[in-house]
Design a protein around this nucleic acid. Structure first.
Lengths: 229, 229
DNA sequence: TCAAAAGTGTTCTTGATACACCCATGC
DNA sequence: GCATGGGTGTATCAAGAACACTTTTGA
């Protein structure tokens, strides 16, 4: 690297806000830090980027190491580059957000995390570093994104009912939605496939199960289709 | 920095896609590199982040140094973190995009740029590094952003006609817009202030000049107003 | 008087919103 | 038979899209 010897180098970390949904509330996965600084504090998972891995690969690796999660929807969020944001010195953090189906990802703490645990976004503990800011940006992004791209399905199990889907949207957007209008709109898009199964959940009428039609979505996108709400 | 001595550190650069508008076409400001690698190639302005400045401050500084531009709309775009994106070694780039009023920013090359020049986005030369990718992402972001936030005004002089505004939107979006509908919508928002001046530009009827009403916009935003198209 | 851009309203169509009752099941 | 969530249609309203002619100026 002949050209850059003279340049001072900051450290670069990745941090990921991992969202999940428990059927009622939007959740975020936090780890309890095992190491200084902020040992014992809650934080979003993350760590240093190695020299021989891309930034995105680092985010995936840290998620795997600290929480056991792999194969998730992951998208870059924002890079936090204030000079004093980390007591260890100059550390620039590339933040990501991830959407997982908690049912498919039993979390298991490891690496430099004492434990990993889901918290409802409405009741988060104090967080290490500037992670509260990162979470706030991630939430804003998710709320924006969910309205014009079908990312909600990343948070639901492969088979779901329309009521579950609606509850998810209500949890993310923080508003009540009209049941008939919601169904009319979402079914009208032709992105859901009705399965031959139903879900029985108590002493009432069983609900039709659906799955998201990835292929139809990709096809529609090519033709200029825009998912909306 | 006791905790991080053991970590290898990538270099971090900032790069900025700077957009302008000449009345007809959307333009991008490029510099001709004076130094290796890619000496003599065109590139978007950028450079290394110093240890004692935030990433955003670095982007502003590099813009000033390489093109003479200051006090512009600047927003973070995306961080490019592939391992081999820079021949100098491991260099992570935090990309920004900027919107400038070319009239107010006579560009002047300096620092490690031989010259700075505007190019229409439809006719860019080959670019250094992965800058073509960065420009593509910046363009996509601008096209998305311009539809739901009034950023277009950053590209126009303080006083402008409705035809100029419409031409700008048409250049960015790449589509023709209906004159009457455009005027109806944009005036209906109450964000433009009609000035008592007119602009004479040839042998035809002079056009009413307007300016953007920043205060009204901030006020409306507080009340949940959403700019759209 | 001609060329060139500025300016102006109405109709139609489409999508968003509001709203209330019957259905299937388990207990 | 009753409690619980599942499922369905219509009428109103607002916003978007389509569309053509008159006005003002300089040459």
């Amino acid at each position: 690297m002949p050209y850059t010897y003279e340049y001072p180098r900051p450290s670069v970390t990745v941090d990921a806000a991992v969202f999940g949904f428990d059927g009622a509330e939007l959740q975020i996965l936090l780890i309890e830090r095992a190491l200084e600084p902020f040992a014992g504090s809650w934080a979003i998972p993350g760590g240093f980027v190695d020299m021989n891995e891309s930034v995105e690969a680092a985010a995936l690796r840290e998620l795997q190491e600290e929480t056991g999660i792999s194969r998730v929807f992951l998208e870059q969020l924002y890079t936090f580059g204030e000079v004093l944001r980390d007591p260890r010195g100059r550390v620039i953090s590339v933040a990501y957000y991830a959407l997982v189906k908690p049912s498919e990802h039993p979390t298991s703490a490891a690496s430099d995390a004492r434990q990993a645990r889901w918290f409802p976004v409405s009741a988060l503990p104090p967080l290490a570093f500037d992670h509260e800011k990162i979470v706030a940006v991630a939430l804003a992004r998710l709320r924006g994104k969910v309205r014009y791209e079908p990312v909600g399905f990343e948070l639901l199990p492969p088979k779901f009912t329309l009521s579950e889907l609606q509850a998810l949207y209500e949890a993310i957007l923080g508003t009540a939605l009209d049941k008939r209008n919601f169904r009319k709109k979402i079914l009208g898009m032709g992105l859901l496939i009705a399965l031959s199964e139903r879900r029985q959940g108590g002493q009432h009428r069983p609900a039709q199960l659906f799955r998201f039609d990835q292929k139809a979505y990709k096809q529609l996108r090519k033709n200029g289709f825009n998912f909306e709400l």
